[in-house]
Amino acid sequence: MADPQQATPPSIASEHAVDRTMLARSILRPSPDVQGTSMEGETVLLDLSTGRYYTLNRLGSVIWEHCTGHSTISDIHAVLCDRFEVASERALDDLVALVNQLVQEGLLQQEGR
């Protein structure tokens, strides 16, 4: 049985990477073929188009819950800073890194508003 693996490392550049100048205008929504279920604070994502599944930890789950097509990256960043004991800069770096991974794996779509 294959071991779980960290999804696409955030260090890998991609044409889909989040544009940091667009954080206040970049809306995030789940891809149509992705279904998510939360269990005990963690989230399992199933991509029906590829058959792959993914798990998000507690913080990843909080971020995913706000990717409903209504919140911008800046909105989600504000939620993290308000709710968690974390420096603003670190929260933003981690948020952008995770969003990049989710977009690169085809789990999230981003669009401007």
Binding site: M1, A2, P4, Q5, Q6, A7, L46, T50, G51, R52, Y53, Y54, T55, L56, N57, R58, L59, G60, V62, I63, L80, R83, F84, E85, V86, A91, D94, L95, A97, L98, Q101, L102, E105
Partner: peptide
């Protein structure tokens, strides 16, 4: 405001095997 904030951990995404020999 003395509201206690939750502890922070780095958000992570883990990919699992294909949905199985």
């Amino acid at each position: 405001n003395t509201e206690k904030k939750e502890s922070y951990v780095q958000p992570s995404l883990v990919k699992h095997e294909l949905l199985k020999d």
